[in-house]
């Protein structure tokens, strides 16, 4: 009996976390006048909200923008992060501790202090309304550097020595010797970076005003708060579904990696 109650409690909790998403998908697939029904199965299927969404906002372009930006950032963070992480973990040089200290310092620096000056920087670079503004400030990530450093420290010195005897330079050592031996670190850092970039919305709202350069969460946000969506809940929910879908699909396949990645860093959003 106690067991049964226990599982009922857990199942109710699971429903509380899953149902809102389920409702969103169902409502986005229902005709506008049936969205108010809080059911589990749509009484009649309708793609009206989706076709309406496509005609109202450049959502396909936003999907491309978000994907492009997130891929560039993830690639940059992996490449630069492993370069710096390798130098800090494996090479001796003057100023190493100072650089390590600076990285830890930037990690604890609240973003509220740099938000306005970074925007002004974008204005001065004339990067407002360009991909540069969305990508360049995110190419380097202190947390990623620290994680690469930690991981590279655990790899045996033998593989590096062997590569040196074969005449490998440091870049070859990083990308041809260490990378194939660091898949867990690459996956973890890749997932966190891609997700953070995909979900970022404050920065795009600040530096992008051209509708065709907007990222998906930005476009959906402006659509949701703007007058255009006021009467059409279905379109708003269709846009939200599209925004959630890529990450949720990735989560279904790589669930374990997602949870491990996030738990290993303790970061959120």
């Amino acid at each position: 009996m106690k067991k049964v109650l226990f599982y009922i409690f857990l199942s109710l909790a699971a429903v509380a976390f899953l149902y809102p998403f389920l409702w969103m998908i169902i409502a986005s697939l229902s005709p506008e006048n049936q969205i108010g029904n809080l059911t589990f199965i749509p009484t009649s299927l309708s793609f009206e909200s989706y076709t309406e969404m496509l005609s109202k906002i450049p959502i396909a372009r936003a999907l491309f923008n978000s994907t492009f930006v997130a891929l560039c950032i993830t690639f940059g963070v992996l490449v630069f992060g492993s370069m710096v992480g390798y130098a800090l973990a494996r090479l001796e040089f003057k100023g190493r501790n100072l650089i390590f200290f600076i990285i830890i310092f930037t990690m604890t620096l609240p973003f509220q202090i740099t938000l306005i000056p970074q925007y002004i920087l974008m204005v001065k670079f004339q990067w407002v309304d360009t991909y540069w503004a969305l990508i360049v400030p995110y190419l380097m990530n202190s947390l990623a550097i620290i994680m690469f450093r930690q991981y590279f420290k655990t790899l045996p010195q033998d593989i590096i020595d062997a590569a040196r005897i074969d005449g490998c330079g440091d870049f070859e050592i990083i990308f041809r010797i260490l990378w194939p031996n660091s898949i867990p670190a690459l996956v973890t850092i890749g997932i966190i970076t891609f997700m953070a970039s995909w979900n970022e919305v404050l920065w795009p709202l600040i530096v992008i005003r051209n509708e065709h350069l907007m990222t998906l969460p930005q476009l959906v946000t402006l659509f949701a708060v703007g007058g255009a969506a006021e009467t059409q809940l279905g379109v708003k929910l269709a846009a939200a579904t599209l925004l959630a879908l890529p990450i949720v699909l990735a989560y279904l396949f790589f669930q374990k990696y997602f949870i491990q990645s996030m738990a290993s860093t303790g970061i959120k959003e």
């Binding site: 919305v201 959906v220 925004l243 996030m262 959003e269």
Partner: peptide, 13 residues
């Protein structure tokens, strides 16, 4: 996995 789902989804959604 169920409890964790909202963590990975955008705050906008």
């Amino acid at each position: 996995a169920a409890f964790f789902l909202p963590v990975i989804v955008s705050g906008v959604v």
